[in-house]
Computed example of a mutant assay.
Amino acid sequence: MKKVNIGGVPEHFNLAWYLTFKNGEYKEQNINLRWKDYPGGTGDMCKALREKEIDIAVILTEGIIKDIIDGNPSKIVQTFIQTPLIWGIHVANDSPYRTIEDLKGKVAAISRYGSGSHLMAYINAENNKWDLKNDLDFKIVGNLDRAIESLQSGDSDYFLWERFTTKPLVDNGTFRHVGNCPTPWPCFVIAARKDFIESNKTDLKTILSIINKTTSEFKDIPSIDKTISNKYNQKLDDVREWLNITEWSQKPIDKETVIRTQSELFSLNIIPEIVDYRTLTAKL
Rank of each mutant, 00 (worst) to 15 (best):
A125D: 03
L15V: 03
S263V: 03
V258E: 01
Q262I: 13
K139Y: 15
G41K: 10
E247H: 08
E256Y: 02
S223K: 10
N180D: 15
F196A: 00
E25M: 14
I69K: 07
K213D: 14
R112F: 13
L243R: 07
L280M: 09
I123R: 14
L236A: 07
Q152H: 13
V91S: 02
E62K: 09
K104R: 15
W161N: 11
A48V: 12
E149M: 12
M1W: 05
Q234W: 09
V77S: 00
R260A: 13
H90W: 06
D203S: 14
I259E: 14
I54K: 08
L243E: 11
P10Y: 11
L85V: 08
I270T: 05
I140A: 11
I65A: 00
V141N: 01
M45K: 10
V170A: 12
T214E: 14
V9F: 09
G88Q: 01
I207G: 13
I197D: 04
A282G: 08
C181I: 07
M1Q: 10
T83A: 09
T281Y: 04
C187H: 14
S229I: 06
D220S: 14
K2Y: 03
E11T: 15
L151M: 02
I245N: 07
Y38C: 04
L280P: 05
A147H: 11
E126G: 07
D37Q: 05
W35E: 01
D155F: 13
S95V: 09
N128C: 01
I271A: 04
Q152N: 14
I31M: 02
F164D: 11
W35N: 01
V9D: 07
E11K: 03
H177R: 12
L136T: 12
L208Q: 11
V9M: 12
S95L: 06
E162Y: 12
W248C: 00
I86Y: 15
I228H: 04
F159H: 14
A192H: 05
T20H: 00
N72C: 14
Y158P: 00
A191F: 07
F188A: 00
N244L: 13
K226Y: 10
G142C: 06
H177V: 02
K36D: 04
K167T: 12
F21Q: 15
S223L: 12
G7F: 06
I228R: 08
Y18P: 00
K205S: 05
Y122S: 08
I123V: 13
D225C: 03
G114V: 08
K219Q: 11
W17K: 03
D145A: 14
K283E: 15
A57I: 08
Y97M: 04
F138K: 03
N143P: 00
T279W: 00
R112T: 12
N128Q: 09
T246V: 10
I245A: 07
S267F: 11
G179A: 05
I86M: 10
I123C: 08
E273K: 15
Q250L: 07
G179H: 05
P252F: 07
K2W: 03
V77W: 02
S267A: 15
K235Y: 00
E101R: 13
K2N: 03
V91L: 09
I6C: 07
D157I: 12
K226E: 15
A57W: 11
W185N: 01
L243Q: 10
L208C: 11
W130I: 02
Y232R: 13
G142L: 04
